[in-house]
């Protein structure tokens, strides 16, 4: 068991290293010159040359990579080219709202998606199933920019139930979290429905029913437990992705998360900020996956024997 966990942790570190290295190579392939982006369109050749020299942008990719990696290992992510603010400060500022929004979205996905899925599986083929399927299809096909704008218009502008933009209170969180969760709610409902439907047809469920257990116990205790495996993996993946920031939702609701920062950094070729945010996102995804893997090991004893 310990060896297994150690191996997973090792793989996680390797994945993080690979992601940031690939990002580094990709930023070098962008045709835009960070020095030019930093100085603005009025900069002449001499000024651009000076900035390139100042930030060691002419030192060759390998040297730059070594330089950057060694500072990262020492915990120094550098300064944003554009704002001169330490990247670590920017991330520290943005990670709070991002985590808040991500967790709120996951909770909504579970609290709404799972019961919907159970309902659909238990009432397979009847109206609750069809209604749930239609609702999930609608939620999954509504793009965030549309759903977000619609919610914003109706519930914030017209009815005034929620603030229009910004963060800082629970009321601010509701609309962005719901917009972000909509697709996930639908997806979770579908996954739970199909897994649970399969489980309900399994032999052990027939046995449980034959023992005369109440249907409620059969579904929730016996079938659902076995249907949860894929959901745990999904939560891990989702949490990682959501922690990387939600560009569209953050933009619509002026939510001060990581996503907006990443988008801006990419558009402006702000190399230290791109690399720093990708690093944090990679760590988030990898750690979330690691945790969901470990949770699965704990949930399902059969997996522990597979080497």
């Amino acid at each position: 068991m310990i060896a297994l966990v150690a191996r997973r942790v090792g793989w996680t570190l390797l994945v993080i290293w690979f992601v940031i290295t690939a990002t580094f190579v990709m930023t070098a392939a962008i045709p835009a010159d960070p020095a030019k982006a930093l100085l603005g369109p009025h900069a002449d050749t001499a000024a651009v040359e000076r900035v390139r020299a100042h930030y060691c942008l002419d030192d060759g990719l390998v040297t730059q990579y070594g330089c950057w990696l060694s500072s990262v290992v020492r915990g120094d992510l550098g300064e944003s080219f554009r704002s001169k603010r330490p990247v670590i400060d920017i991330i520290a500022d943005r990670i709070g709202p991002t985590v808040q929004l991500a967790l709120a979205a996951i909770v909504l996905q579970l609290v709404i998606g799972v019961p919907l899925g159970i309902l659909a599986a238990v009432r397979r083929g009847r109206w609750p199933d069809r209604a749930a399927t239609a609702a999930t299809l609608l939620a999954q096909s509504a793009p965030q920019f549309f759903l977000g704008t619609l919610l914003l218009y109706l519930f914030a502008f017209r009815f005034g139930w929620f603030p229009i933009a910004g963060s800082g209170s629970l009321a601010h969180l509701v609309l962005p979290a719901f917009t972000l969760a909509a697709v996930g709610i639908a997806y979770y409902a579908r996954v739970v429905r199909s897994e649970l439907a399969e489980a309900l047809d399994a032999d052990y469920v027939r046995t449980a029913r034959a023992k005369g257990l109440p249907e409620r116990t059969v579904v929730l205790r016996h079938a659902l437990r076995n249907a949860l495996g894929p959901l745990v993996t999904l939560i891990g993946l989702d949490l990682g992705v959501l922690l990387g920031g939600a560009v569209v939702v953050e933009a619509i609701f002026a939510w001060p998360g990581l996503g907006r920062e990443v988008l801006q950094a990419v558009l402006e070729v702000d190399l230290p900020l791109i690399l720093g945010t990708v690093l944090v996102t990679a760590i988030a995804i990898a750690v979330a996956n690691l945790l969901s893997d470990l949770a699965l090991l704990w949930l399902d004893p059969r997996l522990r024997d597979r080497r």
Binding site: G160, I164, A251, R260
Partner: peptide, 18 residues
């Protein structure tokens, strides 16, 4: 001065008197 507010959102806030 609020930052990072998209223009159409600004207009909604403006109409609401915010």
């Amino acid at each position: 001065m609020y930052e990072n507010i998209p223009r159409d959102t600004q207009f909604l806030m403006f109409e609401r008197g915010e």
